[in-house]
Amino acid sequence: MPYRATALLLLTALPTLGFAQDCTDRAECWPEGSAMHTGVLLAEELRTLDEELAVAHKALIEQVGAAPVTDETPQPDGMLTRALRDQQKAWLRYRAGECQLIGALTGAGGSWPSAYATDCELSLGQQRLEDVQAARECINAISEQDRIFEQGECLRDLAPMARDLPIP
């Protein structure tokens, strides 16, 4: 009889144990205010922001690549659009490393460094989205005949470390 009671108790507890193991990737799985709750919420925001950033960046690349060409303007060779793609990939890697360091520098325990790193990625991502949108607006403000010559100036804020370097 004790064997049956133990087996019955174990079988009754299995669904609960299974639920506890499955519930790790949703904010409601964690106490409000905990690092895991905060981190999951921030990660959801970051996913949404990164999708929005990817769409905006793709639109920027298409916009830059579609600059009108006339007999007086140079033929685009794709170098600028390739550079924008490569720079965005590099920026995403930079953001991850930079924010991982920021999270670690907090000295916090548990999952807090990861939550702080995600918050950092969210902040940098929001700034990057604003810069991409500003570049698109700037390009739109240039007359079509001058766009191929002047759009580069609109893209300078996307390269903050080289922002002050002279362009020949």
Rank of each mutant, 00 (worst) to 15 (best):
Y3N: 13
Y3F: 14
T6M: 14
T6V: 15
L9D: 03
L10S: 14
L11D: 05
L14N: 07
Q21I: 01
A27P: 04
C29G: 04
W30H: 15
P31N: 12
S34W: 06
S34F: 02
G39F: 01
E44K: 09
R47C: 07
T48N: 00
D50F: 03
E51S: 15
E51M: 12
E51R: 13
A59W: 05
L60K: 02
Q63G: 10
A66V: 02
A66K: 00
A67L: 03
V69H: 14
P74Y: 12
Q75M: 15
M79Q: 13
T81I: 07
R82V: 11
R85K: 10
D86Q: 13
D86I: 10
Q87D: 15
K89C: 09
A90H: 10
L92P: 05
R93Q: 15
A96H: 10
L101T: 15
L101N: 12
I102A: 15
W112A: 05
P113G: 02
A115V: 06
Y116C: 01
T118P: 02
D119A: 14
C120T: 01
L122S: 04
L124H: 03
G125I: 06
Q126K: 15
Q127C: 11
Q133W: 00
N140F: 06
N140Y: 06
I142A: 08
S143L: 11
F149I: 04
Q151E: 10
M161V: 09
D164N: 09
P166G: 06
I167A: 09
P168F: 09
